[in-house]
Design a protein around this nucleic acid. Structure first.
Lengths: 303, 303
DNA sequence: GTGAAAGCGCTAACAT
DNA sequence: ATGTTAGCGCTTTCAC
């Protein structure tokens, strides 16, 4: 088949094969954006497990919109994917209903859900936000700003955690986000910091929802002669590859997106492979960890 | 249909629809990796044009392997995609043959081909490499190193351009790449620079195949007290979003991956939409542009 | 217009 | 083992 026929240009029609066998060997994956290493790493893991197992993975991005996500779900179910893996836990009612009655493994990732469709592999974004904030508070800072790009659900939860920690400590929250929904990037971090600087109210520390924002802020500091961490402490989120080698190295909250992808894919394979196709509801907390580096110092006495 | 039936859980079977109508409304896209903003920007453009036009785009990554690319092509043709858009111009003989006899629009992108399958929208990577190198040479540098991660075809072409320029000027090429194939990243730039520093042979200037490498090198400089551009000049490639806001801002060669994606998608739509489905061979050079910023200075006299 | 029937290119179950 | 045939769920054509 591979030798003779394909060299003559014959390629079997998968639509016919799928229709006849009612097996598609595809799994659908929905991510909010491809424009973010976080999801690239996660997708990498999914590919690495699913492709060798003979599955094609169909990636659709929902551009952070629940309506587009619903369309993506319809398209994927229409293609009779054998499982769906979605980043996020917030869906339209119809999305939930379609997924539930499709009777296939569904994995929701990156967050922890109160009401999982069936599998849920994630972490508490709120607790992670709290942890980063308490790290700063413990170091003696009180005027701590929160910097974010567009406030998607995960960033919002991290903000909630920040807010809770600040309130519990008796400090005022200082939000710092772009009015326009701009995706997190080094350039945005730079812009937001510059804006804050020009307004004249620099905080003692900043918690950025994303390492890219943090890097941008650090670069802007450098340009303006503000020393990190001497004059201002900065912590990022996700512990991206560059955090360790930034100058100064960047404190961050490490998240496990690669492992999340691996596990999600493994669980899907197990569910698809097994004789019992009934996926029970299960929730797995992947956790996170605080990584303290040079960019967060101890507050000077008397401040 | 959307109202009543779907709420009851009915989702039409696309495999059947595709088989019956012999229209799939899908286009296949092959990229070497998702782990690089370059391709994310390109994919974004493809999605933005194709999805509103009613096409589903199926993204497959070939992980920089021509064999995996061939498998991807087989899978896509098996699905009867209506067009194929591939990053790159180097394919296995079978890949080329399959694409040619499939009689569908094929767009090869990012490079300029001597023998396009049909459409080819790219730029001369070699000329761009030459341009970056001549910029450094014109500024008075002679000991100019070339830094790269894994040497894929595009990086190799940029190196060729660098080598040509160096040779034409009577200077010796200094290659600087990772023995192991590591993808371009800030961390890799940092590592490679550190390695070179510890070997004790710092050049006067570095041309990095990628802005990420350049940023890593700049950060390593900072840690080691080497001033950019006073002690060493650095130029990157692609002009990523952060290049302008880096401290110091990074000189680079701007490439047009978003526009490339837009144009590729437009051409595909035109070919698919039109009555004449015969796509003629056509080549479009998107060009590039040198962006000079702070990271490349003029050589001090007498050096 | 509305409705019935043929058939897309495979797979799987059957008969030989 | 090998060959034959029904049928997957739609679209499209053709008859009404």
């Amino acid at each position: 088949m591979n030798e003779a026929i394909e060299k003559l240009g014959y390629v079997p029609n998968l639509a016919a094969s799928r229709l006849a066998s009612s097996r598609t060997h595809t799994v659908g994956v929905i991510v909010p954006t491809l424009y973010n290493v976080i999801f690239a790493e996660y997708l990498l893991a999914l590919h690495e497990v699913l492709v060798p197992a003979g599955f094609q993975v169909i990636v659709v991005n929902s551009r952070y919109s629940e309506v587009e996500e619903e369309n993506a779900i319809k398209a994927l179910l229409g293609q009779r994917v054998e499982a769906v893996i979605i980043a996020g836990i917030h869906h339209t009612p119809l999305s939930r209903q379609l997924l539930k009655q499709a009777h296939l493994p569904v994995v929701e990732t990156f967050e922890l859900s109160d009401d999982p469709i069936n599998l849920n592999i994630g972490m508490s974004q709120e607790l992670a936000g709290q942890t980063a904030t308490y790290h700063l508070i413990t170091r003696g800072f009180q005027r701590i700003a929160f910097m974010t790009g567009n406030l998607d659900h995960r960033a919002q939860s991290r903000f909630d955690g920040y807010h809770t920690a600040m309130q519990a400590s008796g400090f005022k929250s200082l939000e710092l986000n772009s009015r326009m929904a701009r995706h997190s990037s080094v350039a945005l971090g730079s812009d937001l910091f510059a804006e804050m600087y020009l307004r004249g109210d620099l905080p003692e520390a900043i918690f950025c929802t994303d390492d890219n924002l943090a890097l941008g802020a650090m670069q802007e500091c450098r340009k303006r002669g503000i020393r990190v961490p001497h004059d201002i402490s900065i912590i990022g989120f996700h512990d991206l590859e560059f955090a360790a080698c930034a100058a100064p190295s960047l404190s961050s909250v490490a998240t496990r997106r690669y492992e999340t992808g691996m596990l999600a894919a493994d669980k899907v394979l197990a569910a698809l492979d097994g004789s019992n196709r009934n996926v029970e509801i299960q929730q797995i907390d992947m956790g996170f960890s605080l990584v303290v580096r040079e960019s967060t110092a101890v507050a000077a006495d008397g401040i």
